[in-house]
Design a protein around this nucleic acid. Sequence first.
DNA 1: CGCCTATTTGATCTGATTCAAACAATGTGG
DNA 2: CCACATTGTTTGAATCAGATCAAATAGGCG
Lengths: 245, 245
Amino acid sequence: MAWSTHAHPLVRKMESIVVLSGEERDALSALPLQIQELKADQDIVREGDRPSRSCLLLKGLACRARTTAEGRRQIFSFHIAGEIPDLQSLHLKTMDHTLQTNTPCTVGLIQHEDLRGLCERHPRISSAFWRETLIDAAVFREWMLGLGTKRAEARMAHFFCEMLVRLKAVGLADSDTCPLPLTQAELGSALGISTVHVNRVLQELRAADLVELTRGTLTVKDWAGLVRLGGFDPTYLHQHDRMAA
Amino acid sequence: MAWSTHAHPLVRKMESIVVLSGEERDALSALPLQIQELKADQDIVREGDRPSRSCLLLKGLACRARTTAEGRRQIFSFHIAGEIPDLQSLHLKTMDHTLQTNTPCTVGLIQHEDLRGLCERHPRISSAFWRETLIDAAVFREWMLGLGTKRAEARMAHFFCEMLVRLKAVGLADSDTCPLPLTQAELGSALGISTVHVNRVLQELRAADLVELTRGTLTVKDWAGLVRLGGFDPTYLHQHDRMAA
DNA sequence: CGCCTATTTGATCTGATTCAAACAATGTGG
DNA sequence: CCACATTGTTTGAATCAGATCAAATAGGCG
C-alpha cells in the first residue's frame, strides 16, 4: 500500500508526491544520513559555500534567507520535516543564499554523490526531486506576487494559509491549528514588512477574529475569511497533481 | 570543439551551461519542434492550463506573470531566446501562472513525451534542464529580495544589470547596450511599482547619468554606479559554475 | 490627420517605516 | 527563589516612499 505512513521522513514526503515502488522505497531508506542536532538560529549552509552534501530536515523549522549589503534580510521560504531545502546545491555549486534553523532542528546530511547515484538508478525519484524544486519555485512566485502586489494584511493572511496547508499535508497540523514558532521580526523578514508593522497587522487580524498567534502556535478562527483576505488559492502548492506510478 | 556557436538555439543555450558530447548535441538538435509565430502580448500558456508540451523561445521577449483577483499583475521573470520558460510543466501538471509574449516571438513547441525520452536517454541533459529551472528559482529569490527589501531605484538598477548580463551571455547585447522593449507599465509590473513611479525613477536614473532607456533600447552609461545602486552581484545567475563533462 | 497607446507632470493621500520608549516574558546565575 | 539581563512584544508620534487620481503631452501608425 503506497499510502502507508512510513517511518523514514523522506519516504513519507516522497510518497506524498509520487507513488513509489518497494525498490524505490528501499533505495530511499538506504541513503546514508549523517544525523546532526542543531540549535535555533544556526546556519546550516551559508551564502558562498560550495557544499558537497544536502540537508534533509528531520525535525524543526528552518528557512532560506539572504541579507542585503544594507543589512536588510529577506526570508525566501520556510522548511519543515521531510524537505531538503538545499537540494539545489546538487546542481548549483555555489550557494546564493543561506539556509538556517529557526528552531532547534534535527537534520540528516546526505552526500551529493549518494544523491546522484540514487537519481541515476531511479529516474522516477530523480523526477520527484526535480519536481520538489519546481514546487519551491512556485512558492517563490506566489510570495513574489504578494510582495509586489498585496498589502501587509493580505500577505500575512496568505502566509498563514500556506503554512497551515503545508503542515497539514505532512500531519503536523490539525484542521485549524499548527505550530508556528516565529518571532514577529522573522515574520517581518518573510513578509517584507517591519517588525512594528507586523505587530499592528497581527492585531488587526486578531481583532477581525481571523487568527490567533501566541507562543508559537497559530490558530485559525475563520478559515474562509483568511483565504479571502489573503487571496489564497493552493493550486501553486501542486499538492494534488501527483505523478502516476 | 564544445564551445562553437551552434545554429540550434537550444544547443547554444545548453552549451553555455554544460559541456555536451556530440551525441547529446545531436539528440537536442533532433528534437521535433513545432514552430509558431506569435504577436506581441499573446498568451502562450495560461494559468490553469495542463499543457502537453513546453515552449522553446527562439526569438523575442516573453514573460511569466500572474494577476491578482484585484486585478494587479506581477511579472515573475522575462525570458529570451534559447530558454524554455515553461519547462516546469514537464513535472507540474497545472500551470499556476501565465506565459505570454512581450514582443512578437518565434517559438518551438516540444512535446513533453519527446522531452521525457530525451531526459531518459541523456541523463546529463536532464540534469542540465533541472539546473536551468534551479537558476530560474534563484532569479525569483533575487527578485524577492528586491521586492521585500529594496527601494524602487535599487530594484530598477538591479533589473537593468540582470538583463544586460543575461543578454550578453547569449550574445544579444554588447558591453553597454541591449534591447529592452518594455513599456513603463510592464517594467512596473515586474518591479512591483506603479507606472507613474516607474517614470519618475527612470528620470532619476537618467539624471544620475546611470542609464538611458529609449525606444526599447537600454544603454548603460555607468555600469559601476548601476551595480552599486542596485546591489547587483551576479552570483545568483550561476553563469560560471558550469558543470563538468 | 486623427486615433490610440505610451510617457510625463502635478497634487494629494496613505500604507508602512523609523525612532523611541515602555512593557512583558523568559531565562541565568547567585 | 529572587534579581537581573536579554529578548520579544506593544504603543505612540513623526516622517516618507510610493500610490492614486487626474490631466497634459508626445509618439506611432493606419
